[in-house]
């Protein structure tokens, strides 16, 4: 199939960006979306132009690096699918596809479609862990964990930190990302000790990073490639209130 692509180009964080239009030909429906971009980049290199910079690594939907806003949707049209797992079967000959980077104040553009998502790392640094040093652990089976809670915890921990939730949100809120981590740890007995301080510190860091507030549109869940549930946001709110009203720090 032949396609028209309108891609955001921006030389660096300071430069002003804009859309460029490209034509790609003979794209196979078997290709992944990023393989289609490989074809375009190869074409640009052959023409002596600079290829389009974008984040990608595992191309199996798990590392969370890829991050294209495709025709107004983070990661494109397929439900619960990262950009790298989106395949060209989703398109037909003659389509025009608009590709932008994540748009959020807390995710400044580095170049073209590549953004800086280190704000997420800093949110984790504020408390997204259990404070246990190496070598202190008891036998793993000394601590039985209810299977349903373990499964729920896992479902929250499946977040890949890609930032699609932020990109999907009209307020650029990071609540789904943050709540997934709070849930992952709050659902496990191991995470109970630091439960109150964790949620408060992480929320404080999120606010500091310039993410917006949550207004419950649930666009985050709808666009999340891993199907992280907004139930986690409910749990986050409960955790936060519990912490604040029980005299937590």
């Amino acid at each position: 199939m032949n396609l028209t692509l309108k891609v955001w180009r921006q030389q660096n964080a300071q430069a002003q960006g804009g859309f460029e239009t490209y034509q790609v030909k003979d794209i196979s429906s078997e290709m992944s979306f990023l393989e289609m971009f490989d074809v375009l980049n190869e074409q640009l290199i052959n023409e002596g132009k600079e290829p389009i910079t974008f984040d990608h690594d595992c191309r199996e939907g798990i590392c969370g690096a890829c991050s294209m806003h495709i025709n107004g949707q983070p990661h494109g049209p397929w439900h619960q699918t990262t950009t790298c797992q989106l395949h060209m079967r989703a398109y037909k000959d003659g389509d025009t596809i608009v590709v932008e980077p994540w748009r959020a104040k807390a995710f400044p553009v580095i170049k073209d479609l590549m953004v800086d998502r280190r704000a997420f790392d800093r949110i984790i640094q504020a408390g997204g862990y259990i404070s246990v040093d190496t070598g202190n652990a008891q036998d793993a089976n000394n601590l039985p964990v209810d299977k349903h809670k373990a499964d729920e915890s896992f479902a929250a921990a499946a977040c890949i930190g890609c930032g699609a939730c932020v990109a999907a949100c009209k307020n650029s809120s990071a609540m789904l990302f943050l709540s997934a981590k709070v849930s992952h740890l709050a659902l496990l007995p191991q995470g109970d000790v630091e439960r109150k301080t964790r949620v408060v510190n992480m929320v404080e860091q999120m606010d500091k990073e310039g993410f917006g507030s949550c207004t419950n549109t649930q666009a985050c869940e709808a666009e999340c490639p891993k199907g992280i549930s907004v139930q986690n946001i409910r749990r986050l709110n409960a955790e936060y209130i519990r912490s604040v009203f029980s005299g937590g720090e």
Partner: peptide, 22 residues
């Protein structure tokens, strides 16, 4: 064996049986 202990202590949500064990 220590690795499993360490990871569980960190909160790695391994698959579990209904009795709560790994």
């Amino acid at each position: 064996a220590n690795i499993i202990d360490q990871c569980v202590a960190q909160g790695v949500p391994f698959a579990r049986e209904y009795g709560g064990l790994l």
